[in-house]
Write a protein that binds this DNA or RNA. Structure first.
Length: 802
RNA sequence: GCCCAGGUGGUGGAAUUGGUAGACACGCAGGACUUAAAAUCCUGUUCCGUUUACGGAGUGCGGGUUCGAUUCCCGCCCUGGGCACCA
């Protein structure tokens, strides 16, 4: 007997990666796909010092398996990869060490490219992008200008996060929980001129998910984030005839309960109203106090204490003519109109009224209590019947709500309005390692956009990274960069020194991939219309309200401007679960980051990725441990041995059943049960062996999950060409129906036996056979049989009475 | 506080238009091979009761609907995720 060839992952994976590369197996015909297109996308990695960790593998390997599966199903698959290479860590590292971010980025991406290559995934490297490369950010700047020219980008004074310790501006993600991530100082706010995109303008459009196959959870999260609310703007005339205050409310049914008005401290009306009065001093004192509250105080329990001051002004409740006082209050935000009508049916208003001794009245009954608001401990927030509410008394408050809104509008007292919690996107960063905002400030002409032909506005090579404490980007330290001429009047001008949020770079990278390989315009309509939208997008759920909203927004804008035909960028979205280590998120600071490299070296890419997929459901994630990897290795060895055995005679029914199960589960991305099914089939076939045809079917089933292994086995079993150019196997329905079936028999709901009958046995014969089963007969004889149920193909249920 | 997802053996997990709970693995125990170990193969493995067979309990807890509930309904508890003074 010739010596059995052993499964040697290392040699075999190296061999096939080289062959695939040489034969350009993973190139996509982007210009003229001959088969239906399939755009398979993963969220690109940030090139951090940690390199690719287990989490990346956990999402990228199954994503690759999915792409290979779609390819075998007959699609022209486009599966690109790139790097989200602008961002903070590289810059922070530069501040500490003086090493230029471009250097760090290169080191990290070089290493990660090797890791990605070792995965043996079907990446289309020709289309790779790197957001920090001028070829790329040229177009990020171009997109900015498109928004600017179409009135969707503007500059306005706004508070930014400021760390007094580091003397620098912080991005939101560096200032989590109100503390600087580096020095732990409490973050304060500083007013600086900032750039915004008009995200809010797209709020309504972003609530439409027609035709999108997205997780319900993600849609819900976005909907909550966008926060649409329907309400009424109600006008309250001021008692001194100096105008009116407009309150936004979603609860017009409580209008008869309103006994005061609260207004946001930063509302411009406040300054005017108190100016020169006896209330000016106390009001300003409270405003100062509120301003000084840090984010930590504001969100802590004690920080939630109601704080305010009387403005000295009164307004008139339009529905009953009552004179009601106007207060500033810390809990009122500049949302809606920044003015809120306050009453006894809202917990916050209630607390405020009790603190400042403002009268309250209830207008909704229902709790059965007759307590007066003054003695009550809490606001009445339950629904009930209205009283003391004019013509609406006696109605249920929820039913009255729309009627009151309508009536207010008819009376000219209010107007129905929609509000969103979503705010405009603050995109400027006072940072070095990002795409410069392509704007020039000219003394004569003001803000002037850089002409398209002058793009990209390149980052200067040499700047001083150390924070200066002036709130400016390090770009401001480079005179060569800053001093320029105005594109309009050719006079002296200065460049904008802020850079863009990295989320701007990542909000369109999927639009760049299809054209990245050619030197064409990034928005080459011929290619983009062919390839957009992305058919499958796989990435973490943590991006639900940031990246996935920004990307949809930019895509919507580009659609509206006529650059892309598709309305939405991502047709199907799937989130992988998170991999933790001992229950904690993996992070450098915790020192619990697990590298995949050692496992890949020891077991090979195929076994490692199969183990990740076998661990549990793809969308669930889990806690990392390597205990079970030997089980997958054993399986791979057995699978190999089975496939190189001389041909035998396997069970065709089982093979076809497995093809069906695997196909169904692949569609749902249930990779764990796919592997289990193939394991089962492998175990069952070890003794009998398999025919050549059966082998070829099963090799194709496992190929997306263990590409190198199956490519080799495909060759050894005389498959033609690459297994990934072979068609996904189909199954024969007629082979799935079994001749006999085993039925469970229950007596009074308890399992008492089973019976085997042929598949088309009539009901009465099945029941007879069931009752004849010894153990069943024993129970039946103990009482009177009062009911017999036969569920076809499943079971028999007998009910007896003692 | 509000919204969402989930809770199944020692472990990871399977199974839901309501129909034999625990597939597939890990681990563990026993056995074969071996001078021995590793590797491999075979057998067993939810728990409790005496012996293949059998009975009882069992899918976070307490009720309910049903011939039958991990699956549906009601009320709780716990874990994870998101939002958090948005009127």
């Amino acid at each position: 007997m010739p010596p059995k060839k052993k499964y040697n992952p290392a040699a075999l994976e190296k061999k096939w990666i080289e062959i695939w590369d040489k034969k350009e197996l993973h190139k996509t015909n982007l210009k003229d796909p001959k088969k239906p297109k399939y755009y398979n996308l993963v969220m690109f990695p940030y090139p951090s010092g940690d390199k690719l960790h287990i989490g990346h593998w956990y999402s990228y390997a199954p994503a690759d398996s999915w792409g290979r599966y779609m390819r075998m199903k007959g699609f022209e698959v486009f599966q690109p990869i790139g790097f989200d290479s602008f961002g903070l860590p590289a810059e922070n590292y530069a501040i500490k060490t003086g090493i230029h971010p471009s250097k760090t980025t290169k080191t990290n991406t070089d290493y990660m490219r090797k890791q990605l290559a070792a995965m043996g995934a079907a990446w289309n490297w020709d289309a790779a992008v790197m957001t920090s490369s001028p070829d790329y950010y040229k177009w990020t700047q171009w997109i900015f200008l498109q928004l600017y020219k179409n009135g969707l980008a503007y500059r306005k004074e706004a508070p930014v996060n400021w760390c007094p310790g580091c003397q620098t501006v912080l991005a939101n993600e560096q200032a989590q929980d109100g503390k600087c991530e580096r020095c732990d100082s409490e973050v304060t706010k500083k007013d600086l001129a900032q750039w915004f995109f008009k995200l809010k303008k797209y709020a309504q459009k972003l609530l439409n998910y027609d035709g999108l196959d997205w997780p319900e959870k993600t849609k819900l999260m976005q909907q909550n984030w966008i926060g649409r609310s329907e309400g009424v703007n109600i006008d309250f005339p001021l008692a001194d005839d100096s105008g009116k205050l407009t309150c936004y409310t979603t609860r017009p049914d409580t209008i008869y309960s309103v006994t005061f008005i609260v207004i946001a401290p930063e509302h411009p009306w406040v300054k005017k109203a108190v100016s020169g009065t006896e209330h000016e001093k106390p009001v300003n004192k409270v405003i100062d106090k509120i301003k000084k509250q840090t984010d930590i105080e504001r969100t802590s329990e004690t920080g939630k204490d109601k704080l305010g001051a009387f403005t000295g002004k009164y307004a008139i409740n339009p529905v009953n003519g009552e004179k009601i006082p106007v207060y500033i209050a810390n809990f009122v935000l500049m949302y809606g109109t920044g003015v809120v009508m306050a009453d006894a049916h809202d917990q916050r208003d209630f607390e405020f009224a009790h603190k400042y001794d403002i009268p309250l009245k209830f207008v909704i009954s229902g709790t059965g209590k007759k307590t007066s608001p003054k003695n009550a401990k809490e606001a009445h927030t339950d629904d009930g019947t209205l009283f003391d509410s004019g013509q609406f008394s006696g109605m249920n408050n929820r039913e009255a709500l729309p009627k009151i809104a309508e009536w207010l509008e008819k009376q000219g007292m209010g107007k129905r309005t929609v509000n969103y919690r979503l705010r405009d996107w603050l995109l400027s960063r006072q940072r070095f390692w990002g795409a410069p905002i392509p704007i020039v400030h000219c003394e004569k002409c003001g803000e002037v956009p850089v002409p398209d032909k002058d793009l990209p506005v390149e980052l200067p090579k040499y700047v001083d990274f150390k924070p200066k404490g002036d709130g400016k980007s390090p770009l401001a330290t480079s005179p060569k960069f800053v001093n320029t001429t105005c594109p309009k009047c050719k006079g002296k001008a200065k460049r904008e020194t802020d850079t863009m949020d990295t989320f701007v770079c990542s909000s369109w990278y999927f639009l760049r991939y299809p054209t990245a390989g050619s030197k064409s315009h990034a928005f080459d309509k011929k290619i983009l219309d062919k390839w957009m939208p992305v058919d499958m997008y796989i990435g973490g759920p943590e991006h639900a309200c940031m990246h996935l909203i920004y990307a949809r927004f930019i895509h919507h804008v580009m659609h509206d401007l006529g650059y892309v035909k598709a309305k939405e960028p991502f047709r199907r979205l799937v989130h992988q679960g998170m991999i933790t280590k001992d229950g904690a998120k993996m992070s450098k600071s915790k020192g619990n980051v697990v590298s995949p490299d050692a496992f890949v070296k020891k077991f090979g890419s195929d076994i490692f990725r199969m183990y990740l997929m076998f661990m549990g459901p793809f969308t669930e994630g889990g806690d990392w441990n390597d205990k079970g990897i030997m089980g997958v290795k054993r399986f791979a060895d057995r699978f190999w041995n089975l496939m190189i055995q001389p041909d035998g005679e396997g069970n065709d029914a089982l093979v076809h059943k497995t093809i069906k199960k695997v196909t169904d589960d692949m569609e749902k991305l249930h990779f764990n049960t796919v592997i289990a099914a193939i394991m089962e089939l492998t175990n069952a076939s070890m003794k009998t062996g398999l025919t050549k045809t059966q082998k070829q079917s099963i090799i194709r089933l496992l190929a997306p999950l263990a590409p190198h292994l199956c490519e080799e086995l495909w060759e050894l079993n005389s498959g033609r060409g690459s297994v990934f150019n072979a068609q996904w196997p189909t199954y024969d329905e007629s082979l799935l129906v079994e001749d006999t079936m085993t039925l469970a028999i229950q007596v009074n709901g308890k399992l008492r036996g089973t019976v085997e009958v042929s598949k088309d046995t009539e009901e009465k014969d099945v029941l007879t056979a069931a009752k004849a089963v010894e153990n069943v007969a024993k129970y039946v004889s103990e009482g009177t049989l009062i009911k017999e149920i036969y569920i076809k193909g499943k079971m028999v249920s007998l009910v007896i009475k003692p």
